[in-house]
Write a protein that binds this DNA or RNA. Structure first.
Length: 637
RNA sequence: GAUCUCGUAGCUCAGCUGGAUAGAGCAGCUGCCUUCUAAGCAGCAGGUCGCGCGUUCGAAUCGCGCCGGGAUCACCA
């Protein structure tokens, strides 16, 4: 609620009371933007009150309008269309407001920490067996931007990254490198470390597939002589299941058989052995693990730097994967969990409309959920002041987090209600889902490079950098390319699945990051030109009495007026798209103004200076908004 | 089978705590660079808001049902 809203709602409450003896609380009165077709700045819909006023909507609106015009100096005029009361707010109000905020350099932002809330926001959370791809880009950009938005709302934010650095999938890359790597290193191959490790993850699959397929083929041909009696028995059970399975369950039964075939390959046996060695602390395995993970981290560091994301706190699964077991034991004694005959531990969530969920395997080892319970508990202990714990994770894990928060709550963690799953939709390509098997996965590093290369080509073609030094030009290409990418992804509501069309994302016209950057650069150019002409726009003085606002100028000030609410809204929704849409709209309005209204050529000196100040304020908002999206704005382009 | 989610212009998306004739961008078509950066501006064209029923003075927005896409429900992570 803005100052204007609260002033008007109080007056309207008084009006309703004195005109119709109606008791309506000011807080319950809401306004909406005046439709562009009609005159006015803010609109009250009176339909809700007509039952009580016993008058027609038009009559009711007219009476309220007249009351406001007489009692509120800032209400200059009003008009009524059906049940809509459109109020015209006087120019001095808008100019007075602008004058008030001109001295601020972060208008709309709350001071960091002013809310007294500390929020931990987890994002990125990569696996160390392959490089980052397009999906990770959305995760990183989203998490990073939401962190900034929450800070702009006055919160202290801890940016956390939980690295998935252990497990079967990591051992696959390690084993493949050991078996087929011939000692390759990032140095010897001039490959980025994460890409080299990813190469061996793929290599593993290449050797693995023929092995399990051979198992299936053998079994189909009745060759089962390699199996021990126990395995043979399981195979018979699986085959029988497949045979009697209904049409619908056939896939599932086939998957189970395939899993068993994978299990019994030499490669998988070796992988599992490697994982056991790792868990036992075998020095050779640990050394290999460290070496390859270091390669990956060096690679990730580059990618993160290029993306412009940072972290305050790193967590490694290798250090946290044992957490949670103790909590599960405690939960057992509390009766939250139950132990089956085979020793596995479960929670029954059927009362909550969910299913049974496993927390410890029959061999006593943890599953993902166990670790997540453990890390959450650890974070609550480590940061007792935490007001909120946010997980930026794809919506494929909606169920997982529902269960996690429920378990935490059942274990008695009151902080469970402060946990939030920032769930975002998958990124698809125009031809459908990204599939590693079909090689359609878009690599993060490649994509960024492509964007920068395109920015270079476009900029050179337009002849924009003729007077730039080579370093300045390169920096500009990077800024533009990254802006295109980031804006393209962040403008979409995070909750929604989105389509990433490389051709479209590389467009620099229209609703794009580069267009917004360009508008900022134009304003800066304007201000530079003003300076060389000796025009001083830096002061904050402004005489509302001497300026008559054009409609386009009033629209701009109104948009500025709404900015704090936009930042608040983006924070409430955890949605950078709110900022993106706002700043595009603002930029578009400014372009209209810029194109249609003389600024430096204005003869009236008061007006000229006012327009410069207005432009300066718009530039500030563009810059600060883009910062919330993690996007840089150049001074020239 | 169960649960969750999405469906708005040819394409990508806004709008969804109910409000006026549903908005942008891209793609298509017209204009505008001796004038503050044309990565721009102005305009034209493009819609049964998946379908149906209901609630309401009023529904793209809320509820129910159906159709279609996606996801999840593993001793995977």
């Amino acid at each position: 609620m803005t100052h204007l809203d609260s002033l008007l709602s109080q007056q309207i409450s008084l009006a309703l009371s004195s005109l119709f003896t109606l008791d309506i609380k000011p807080e319950s009165i809401v306004f909406q933007k005046t439709n562009i077709e009609f005159k006015g700045d803010i609109t009250l819909v009176v339909f809700p009150y007509t039952k009580a006023t016993k008058k027609s909507p038009e009559e009711t609106a007219k009476l309220i309008g007249e009351y406001l015009k007489n009692s509120v100096p800032d209400v200059e005029d009003y008009n009524v269309v059906k049940g809509f009361l459109n109020l015209v707010i006087a120019s001095p109000f808008w100019l007075g407001f602008l004058k008030e905020i001109l001295p601020l350099d972060a208008y709309g932002f709350k001071k960091k920490g002013s809310s007294g809330r500390t929020i931990m926001l987890e994002y990125s959370s990569p696996n160390t067996n392959k490089p980052l791809h397009l999906g990770h880009i959305r995760n990183n950009l989203l998490g990073s931007s939401v962190a900034s938005i929450l800070e702009a709302n006055g919160n202290k934010v801890i940016r956390a990254n939980l690295v998935n650095d252990r497990g079967v999938h990591i051992c696959k890359s390690m084993l493949a490198w050991k078996l087929y790597g011939n000692g390759e290193t990032p140095e010897s191959t001039s490959m980025k470390g994460d890409h080299l490790v990813g190469k061996y993850y793929v290599e593993y699959e290449k050797h693995f597939a023929p092995q399990w397929k051979a198992n299936l083929a053998d079994w189909n041909a009745g060759k089962t002589d390699k199996l021990n009696p126990k395995e043979l028995e399981k195979l018979h059970t699986l085959l029988k299941n497949l045979e009697i399975a209904s049409e619908k369950k056939k896939d599932r039964a086939q998957d189970e058989l395939t899993d068993f075939a994978k299990e019994l390959t030499p490669l998988m046996q070796q992988t599992k052995e490697m994982l056991r060695n790792w868990e036992a602390g075998d020095p050779e395995t640990i050394a290999l693990w460290k070496k390859m993970n270091d390669w990956v981290y060096a690679g990730f560091a580059q990618t993160y730097k290029a993306l412009g994301v940072t972290f305050d706190k790193m967590y490694y699964e290798s250090e946290t994967y044992l957490l949670g077991k103790k909590i599960v034991e405690e939960g057992l004694t509390k009766g939250v969990f139950l132990r089956r005959e085979d020793g596995s531990v479960w929670i029954d969530l059927t009362q909550d409309g969910l299913d049974l969920k496993i927390l410890l395997r029959s061999d006593g080892t943890s599953v993902y959920m166990t670790q997540d319970v453990g890390t959450a508990a650890e974070r609550f202990r480590e940061f007792p002041e935490l007001s909120q714990l946010i997980y930026t994770v794809g919506n494929e894990q909606d169920y997982h987090f529902k269960v996690l928060f429920l378990i935490l709550s059942k274990l008695g963690y009151t902080q469970a209600k402060n946990c939030y799953h920032l769930s975002y939709g998958m990124v698809d390509l125009p031809e459908g889902k990204m599939k590693s098997r079909e090689g359609t996965v878009v690599d993060a590093d490649d994509l960024m490079q492509e964007m920068i290369d395109t920015a270079r080509a476009m900029t050179l073609e337009l002849g924009k950098v003729d007077d730039f030094t080579p370093e300045e030009a390169e920096s500009l290409y990077r800024q533009i390319g990254m802006a295109a990418l980031k804006y393209f992804i962040l403008k979409v509501d995070p909750r929604k699945r989105m389509v990433f069309d490389p051709k479209e994302s590389i467009d620099f016209n229209g609703n794009t990051g580069p267009f917004i950057q360009y508008t900022h650069a134009r304003i800066q150019s304007l201000l530079r030109n003003a300076k060389t002409k000796g025009l001083n726009h830096e002061g904050n003085d402004l005489d509302p009495g001497k300026i008559t606002l054009l409609p386009v100028e009033k629209d701009l000030i109104k948009a500025i007026y709404n900015y704090p609410d936009v930042i608040r809204q983006a924070g409430v929704e955890y949605n950078p798209g709110v900022i993106a849409n706002y700043v595009f709209d603002l930029t578009q309005h400014f372009s209209t103004f810029y194109q249609s209204t003389p600024i430096l050529k204005e003869e009236n000196q008061e007006l000229l200076i006012f327009r410069l100040k207005l432009s300066r304020m718009i530039a500030q908002i563009i810059r600060n908004s883009m910062t919330l999206l993690g996007i840089e704005v150049p001074e020239r382009m």
